[in-house]
Amino acid sequence: MNIHAYEKLWLVAAMLLIVGFIATITYGSVALGITMVGDQQDTVEPTELADDDRFDDPRVEQVGENEYEAYVVAQTFSFQPNPIEVPEDSDVTFYVTSRDVIHSFSLVGTNVNTMVIPGEVAEMTVEFDDPAEYGVVCNEYCGPGHHDMEGEVHVVSEDEFDLTELEADGPDEVETGDEISVDVTTENRQLEAIETTITLEIGDETLTEDVTIEGGETLETTFTVDSATLGEGDHDWTVTVDDHTDSGTVTVADDLEDDGGDDDE
């Protein structure tokens, strides 16, 4: 076979180029630890996510000192949870699956990008350094509302971040003179203990309680207010723990009728 010298030269150069490309990619994998989305996770039944430990409650979980896991469900045409909130200087592993068709989960302006295929779970570990807000798009066509499918990932500062769940419950009505008691359940889903203040505001009254909640613990607190000091009428109340609030309304009345006023279901 008759190959011109220049062509041989180019053949060698082309091979160098190809080997160089493969070497660069390998360098990224081995030296920089860039990992592909793969088959690490077991499959899942897309129609039974509610029964799956990983996806029954789309959430962020703390699993180590600076390590978090985010369980994300993509579906036409939204992501859950949204926004996804994680702290700065953390390693976050995303587990993403789909409830219906093929989607993607792609953090705009980053290299965090994966297909989301029903039945499969995409796993990606990402290091977040500084606080930032990222948009999330679905970049695979998933139906007529595809362009409306978006989400957000918020990387917040250590001070702002918590995994606290707050729930407060109070009576709908009390008779003047009786006590109003508001039960507050505060769950600290982080691993470390938090010190914080629970505040109840009702009418002109403000009640506070300084608490320490151990990691993974739930604290039950009850605030008690004398309805007489509030007087007759509707009173809005708000319970606040850090950035979390829960609220309700209580009606204080002189004569409570047995059958009336129960507009709660």
Binding site: F21, Q41, E120
Partner: peptide
Amino acid sequence: YLDPGIAEGFKFIAMTNTMFLLL
């Protein structure tokens, strides 16, 4: 390359073939 459910090794093999297809 970004599909969950396909091992990274298979993806690497596909890349090698693809790169040689440049030739």
